[in-house]
């Protein structure tokens, strides 16, 4: 694999720790509130949806996941301002605002910035905060923690019944 790929993976994994923790942290709640109140982050919310598209997941969930990314980034001087840079880089690619062009053009604008370090950082952190979000888990029927239910020993760990052959 290329160096770039390895580096990006490292970042994604490293960002897991803080993005996962941010879900329970108070700074996350504050950032979420701030984000939700301003109402002018719809472009970045839409950006999040294009990165990890799930039709059944509400905008509010994407907004919250992005707020998690923001709070994590602001706490770190190396990443502070990354979201602004992404927004600026998307808007700079056409005369209108990125949010106002059609989806195909939006996607190709994202492709044009996908090799940037800030993009890799955002993608990695968003992957963590979005795919750890309880509403996303609910949407995909992923129940999360199981130890308090005694695991799946008596709850279907081997209940598959549609397989054509059994041995």
């Amino acid at each position: 694999m290329t160096e770039l790929y390895t580096t990006r993976r490292r970042f994604m994994l490293a960002s897991l720790a803080f993005s996962g923790l941010a879900v329970t942290g108070t700074s996350f709640l504050r950032a979420t509130a701030a984000w939700a109140n301003t109402g002018d982050n719809e472009d970045l919310t839409h950006f999040a949806r294009l990165l990890f598209p799930h039709d059944g997941v509400a905008d509010a969930v994407y907004a919250e996941a992005m707020a998690g990314v923001l709070s994590g980034f602001e706490a770190n001087p190396e990443t502070a301002g990354f979201l602004d840079r992404a927004e600026a880089a998307l808007n700079a690619q056409q005369d209108e605002a990125w949010f106002d062009v059609d989806e195909a053009a939006q996607i190709s604008a994202i492709k044009n910035i996908q090799d940037e370090a800030f993009f890799a950082a955002i993608l990695g952190a968003l992957r963590g905060s979005f795919y750890y979000h309880p509403a996303v888990w609910e949407h995909i029927n992923y129940p999360g923690s199981s130890k308090e239910h005694g695991g799946y020993l008596h709850r279907g760990f081997d209940d598959i019944s549609w397989l054509p052959e059994s041995n």
Partner: peptide
């Protein structure tokens, strides 16, 4: 789920289809 997405890497429907069908 997070690890499915991270393992596949990248973004867009090529990635999210796997989590959509978790």
């Amino acid at each position: 789920p997070w690890n499915v997405s991270a393992t596949i890497g990248g973004w867009g429907p090529e990635n999210s289809v796997f989590i959509e069908n978790y």
